[in-house]
Write a protein that binds this DNA or RNA. Structure first.
Lengths: 100, 100
DNA sequence: AAAACATATCTACAATTCTCGATATATAAA
DNA sequence: TTTATATATCGAGAATTGTAGATATGTTTT
């Protein structure tokens, strides 16, 4: 858990929004056709549609968030689903609150 | 209080350390000769010495932290003292904890 | 096996940040 | 009122980030 690396992720509006959206996938994304739940999160395409940015940009963003351990990817067939890593998010908030 | 702007400040190790040092000026800095307390914080020179970075770089850092409302400057003669803006820091942590 | 599709990676350029030395400004000291 | 000191601002080059299109990879369907 790296405070500076996670803060870098949070220093971009779109990435902060992605994190927020993923708190309530049912409210923020259409239902998946192949999987009828959001247990593993949301596929890249839905996130991309919602941001309006290019596919490669979103993929890069999600990758950086995964590198900071904020997101957990799961592959289902040709889709990759991303969900929040609540443990790390909580740890980050805890350390910030304690140390800052 | 702008989450993205404050996160930008926190996305740099030196700036995070400055914020932490300013929690306990007595422990982290030598006593001031002209003012025998830290009510208004710490002067730029002491902060610069501690970081080892150039004067202009530190001045720029402090300015960006002030712009994000994380620090409050006070001029005493030819010195500028900077102290933490606890209100904003608390508000930031509160919003992050609630929204993230 | 070929075509179609979702995502990841590569390449590149624009924008921003990092960092410094030089210079300007404000204040205090001589 | 000249000089010294502390800090701020300017200008610039290096490094990093933002963002996109093109291409590669992996998976499913035909």
């Amino acid at each position: 858990m790296n405070i500076v690396e996670i803060s870098k992720v949070l220093s971009n509006k779109t990435r902060v929004e992605i994190l927020k959206w993923l708190k309530n996938p049912e409210e923020n994304f259409p239902p998946h056709q192949d999987i009828d739940h959001f247990n593993d999160g949301v596929c890249v395409g839905y996130i991309q549609d919602k941001t309006g940015l290019s596919q490669s940009t979103i993929s890069t963003y999600l990758n950086s968030m995964q590198n900071a351990n904020l997101l957990i990817p799961t592959r289902h067939g040709k889709w990759t689903y991303y969900k929040r890593n609540e443990k790390v998010i909580k740890a980050y908030l805890g350390r910030l609150t304690k140390e800052l």
